[in-house]
Design a protein around this nucleic acid. Structure first.
Length: 818
RNA sequence: GCUCGGGUGGCGGAAUGGCAUACGCAGGGGACUUAAAAUCCCUGGGGACGAAAGUCCCGUGCGGGUUCGAGUCCCGCCCCGAGCACCA
């Protein structure tokens, strides 16, 4: 490099453009008048004390590159950012440091803001938000009230998951294999009065919309995760009459009504309300002992699958409506009260769990479906669950019917004879939103002895979280706010008598279930979201985030949006038109974790290589939707790539490079690159887009081409990845304004193909040569040319050609017999 | 156990059923330099034969199959990762 050429120095370029962007408000679209609004959203971060890690940066860079690309395609892109700053994480960390979260969080947010600025995100900072801001959580509380108004928020006493370390209730979603999702402690069960949202009322719609392409275009893996979570199953409710109790019936839920004739006993959950009714004098003592034991166990232990079956006989019998025969009713904790009707018909011949139970307690096992070639009376060593092609046996008039048909036929018979009906069940549970903690929005409810649970009037919102020093949680099962009588004693809004505030705060997932509605309307304090702004910007056009939120955040956000839609407050019921899950970054082949000490701090890399190099590297190291392996050794490649473009820009400034002649090869490569990059950007295939740009750079260097127009468009195409760098190159090229207000390069389809093509010649599918011909050459000519190739002749010698395959523009294949 | 991903050089990874290993990293050789870094050029799956040019064989986790042709499609396995897990 000539000594008088200025070299690329990110330490100079990057701060320069941060200042320019801020000063010129480059990243602030006109929210009231943008003609082609495009809402580009990424999952907002939790501002941890450690700062942004490289995984966050990977996620944000990919989302940002997409937003910048869309903007260069002429859309008015709104790319907001904010902070999900309430919650147990922040509170626990504050406790550890002996700080108040209200002190800690602003500090963390300042650090995140610095880092997010340095990475060069196209963020509309004027609309940044924090969920901890009373101007924000006022509306989080308002959302709670909207649900309350519609009867979708209710209070229930029930067994809940209790984390002994975090000292709070956890949603089932937050319990992973019996342990707290956040701290890993084994979860216990407690009985507490909690607030729930009736998300189960929406299970069907939440499921059905997933398959509606007019509403949702989501990553397939995320859709699948939501489907599994909602867990629809189709079956039937069957009613069993109890012998000797004329008014007592036991409804059970089954997905296999076809096996009704094989139901040899019933099992009800220990908490089932009929447990006491069905118990006889002889069995009372043993039943009471069993039920008490079950109650002492926590919910999680009861859900561990392969425990040995336990249970107790009630002493009662029920009539199987199909056979008319009495079958015993048992109590066992493998039946869950929360699912279905809390009672099952046990079919040990065709269900592994029922089989294990029947074996343990010597209950009869009967086969009612036989697979092809299998005798119904074959030894009963295990349950036959898969009966896809089986036929009915031991089932009276249904005998010999294919099992799949019997499911429908038995359900129809049940309905006709009044023994039951077809029924759909969902695995989804209602959403418990109460948290016995401090660092969250207080639930806006006041308890009055006369009026009950009274919502705080909307004009009194927000219910400010008081700045108490003593916010440490304890084992009492009530929130720290309950220790602050001066705060919670208030008059009842209805009758004015002394009343008490709810002292629990709401789940962090409620904060994040509506933040995307707030971004376009952050300056309004008299409404959660402005109708006109919302109409212009929502639903979100593109949402990018981690699949770890596939079933929590994304489902809750959909639910809240659907409720607001039903309340007439939103015109759409699905908030995210397109969602793409990004992958995860690992370090040198292993997971990053604090304990391994291999968490990559992006600051060091930004300082050493520049944010643009780091961004380009992150987008290059693997497919965005899969993630990749961050290796220190690899980053020099992308830096070299940018250095070479810088040099091409320097050379292109020479007056001779304007409208210089472009070699045919370069011209074609240029247009092919433009075509490929645009297509790959849209699919988020950033690694291959960058590879294509690298190929163009290599071609330009090999052919010694620095034609101004080609270099200018190269700079435009690298801009989504290296925005500061591209702006600087743009300016050096003498271009006016921000490169992000320039139009994405167009390509000419006719110039993406060459006239001369290479046709591969195969003999029996093996490559034996090739010929260069004009694209217009006909098949016969190509065949003649192919036969002249030395390598082809060698392999054809003494053989007979039995077939000739011609794939236009690609290859020919001679099939020979020896 | 169930569901969804995935298995390709030394490494990260490319490949609408059509030249496997694009692009990048690391490596080897060379140029420049007092030297090093940086930069630039060449090379780059394994094996056999050959002085070389080259020729041939084998190669995308394993075993079958479909096809003129399979990393790609089908069947049966193995392994890794993620999620769910007594959901009747």
């Amino acid at each position: 490099m000539d000594s008088n050429r200025p070299s690329y120095d990110p330490a100079f370029v990057e701060p320069k453009w941060h200042a320019r962007w801020a000063e010129r408000r480059t990243n602030e679209p006109d929210l009231d008048a943008a003609p082609r609004p495009y809402y580009n959203l990424m999952m907002f971060p939790y501002p941890s004390a450690e700062g942004l890690h490289v995984g966050n940066l990977f996620a944000f860079t990919g989302a940002d590159a997409y937003g910048r690309f869309k903007r260069m395609q002429g859309l008015n892109v709104f790319e907001p950012i904010g902070f999900d700053a309430f919650g147990i994480h922040s509170e626990n960390f504050a406790l550890k440091l002996g700080l108040h979260p209200a002190e800690l969080i602003p500090r963390n947010i300042a650090n995140f803001t610095r880092q997010l600025t340095s990475m060069g995100g196209m963020f509309a900072w004027e609309h940044a938000l924090s969920t901890t801001d009373p101007r924000y959580y006022k509306w989080t509380q308002w959302i709670f009230l909207q649900l309350f108004k519609r009867g979708l928020a209710y209070r229930k006493k029930g067994a809940v998951n209790w984390c002994p370390t975090d000292k709070t209730v956890l949603a089932n979603e937050q319990v992973i294999a019996g342990a707290c999702e956040r701290c890993g402690s084994m979860v216990e069960t407690r009985v507490l009065e909690q607030w729930y949202f009736r998300i189960t009322d929406y299970a069907g719609r939440l499921l059905d919309n997933l398959d509606d392409p007019t509403r949702m275009d989501w990553s397939a893996t995320t859709v699948q995760a939501q489907k599994n979570w909602i867990g629809r199953s189709d079956g039937a409710e069957v009613v069993f009459r109890v012998v000797g109790h004329d008014n007592t019936q036991i409804p059970v839920y089954t997905t296999r009504p076809d096996t009704l004739f094989g139901a040899t006993f019933l099992v009800i959950a220990p908490e089932h309300p009929l447990a006491a009714v069905l118990t006889t004098v002889a069995t009372r003592a043993s039943v009471e002992r069993y039920v008490a034991d079950a109650a002492a166990k926590d919910l999680v232990t009861r859900r561990v699958g392969d425990r040995e079956k336990s249970g107790v006989f009630t002493g009662s019998f029920a009539i199987n409506p199909a056979t008319g025969k009495p079958i015993p009713v048992w109590i066992a904790d493998y039946v869950l009260m929360e699912y279905g009707t809390g009672a099952i018909m046990a079919v040990p011949g065709h269900d592994e769990r029922d089989f294990a139970f029947a074996t343990r307690f010597e209950l009869p096992i009967l086969r009612v479906v036989a697979n092809e070639g299998e005798h119904a009376a074959s030894p009963l060593e295990h349950a036959v669950v898969d009966v896809g092609h089986g036929r009915m046996v031991n089932s009276a008039s249904f005998d010999d019917m294919p099992a799949a048909d019997a499911k429908v036929a038995v359900t129809a018979w049940l309905e006709r004879d009044g023994h039951g009906k077809g029924s759909v069940q969902y695995r989804l549970y209602d959403w418990c939103i109460s948290r016995q903690r401090y660092w969250g929005p207080p639930i806006p409810i006041i308890y009055c002895d006369d009026c009950g649970a009274v919502p705080v009037p909307e004009e009194q919102l927000p219910v400010i979280l008081p700045p108490v020093e003593d916010f440490r949680p304890d084992d009492s099962g009530v929130s720290p706010l309950a220790r602050h009588a001066d705060w919670y004693h208030v008059p009842c809004p209805k009758c004015g008598k002394p009343a008490r505030r709810e002292t629990d705060v709401s789940d962090t997932f409620l904060d994040s279930a509506w933040y995307f509605l707030r971004y376009p309307s952050t300056e309004f304090d008299d409404r959660a979201f402005d109708p006109e702004r919302t109409r212009r910007w929502l639903p979100v056009d593109n949402y990018i985030g981690g699949n770890e939120h596939a079933v929590l955040h994304l489902l809750y956000a959909r639910f809240v949006t659907m409720v607001l839609h039903d309340a007439g407050l939103l015109s759409f019921e699905e908030p995210f038109r397109r969602f793409r899950a990004h992958g995860l970054i690992i370090k040198e082949g292993t997971k990053m974790s604090k304990s391994k000490g291999n968490v990559v701090n992006p600051d060091e890399y930004v300082a050493r290589w520049g944010a643009d190099t780091l961004r380009t590297y992150l987008m290059f190291l693997g497919p965005y939707q899969d993630g990749g392996d961050f290796r220190d050794a690899g980053i020099s490649g992308p830096r070299r790539f940018l250095d070479r473009i810088w040099e091409l820009v320097t050379d292109a400034l020479h007056p001779d490079c304007r409208d210089a002649e472009i070699l045919q090869d370069v011209l074609v490569k240029w247009h092919q690159t433009k075509k490929k990059v645009a297509a790959e950007m849209d699919l988020l295939h950033y690694n291959t887009a960058i590879a294509a740009l690298m190929e163009l750079v290599n071609a330009l260097r090999e052919q010694n081409c620095v034609e101004y127009g080609v270099v200018r468009e190269l700079v435009q195409m690298v801009a989504p990845f290296a925005p500061h760098f591209a702006e600087e190159c743009w300016e050096r090229l003498g271009q006016q304004g921000s490169i992000f207000d320039s139009a994405w390069p167009e390509f000419d389809e006719a110039l993406t193909v060459t006239d001369e093509i290479t046709v591969v010649i195969q003999v029996n599918g093996k490559v034996r040569g090739n010929v260069n011909v004009s694209r217009r050459t006909d098949e016969a000519t190509i065949r003649e040319l192919a036969l002249e190739e030395a390598g082809v002749q060698r392999h054809l010698a003494g053989k007979t050609i039995t077939k000739f395959v011609y794939v236009p523009g690609r290859l020919v294949n001679f099939v020979v017999a020896s």
